[in-house]
Amino acid sequence: MITLNKMLLYCIPTLFMLLSAALLAGGTWIKEPLGEKHDIMAQMEYMHSLIDKKEWEKASDEYDNVEASWETISKRVQFSVERDDLEAINETLAKIKGGMKQKDTSIVYPELYYFYELWEQLG
């Protein structure tokens, strides 16, 4: 007969392994938005469309939302992704911000597409 102690002996390590694996390997789904808030891809695409229309002021406002979302998401995914990937996203976001300040699409567009690629690979 399996006693409670024996069951816990197997259940606790198994549960620990499963939860740890989920935390360390779950980057691809942990990065996804948990609700309507922090949907960074949607925010980025909206910002992209504003830049297309040269509406720099609005795009800059939307950038603040993107930055806030990234702040939250990066804390969530930091356990399962490489530090270099997080730093690359920080870097490209900073370049996008600078490019928008300069209202220079030749800076912003390459970084936007680089961001999409980084986001796709993150996790």
Partner: peptide, 10 residues
């Protein structure tokens, strides 16, 4: 080693 994913080592 934070430059690589922990899962790879696991």
């Amino acid at each position: 080693d934070l430059t690589t994913k922990a899962m790879v080592h696991w």
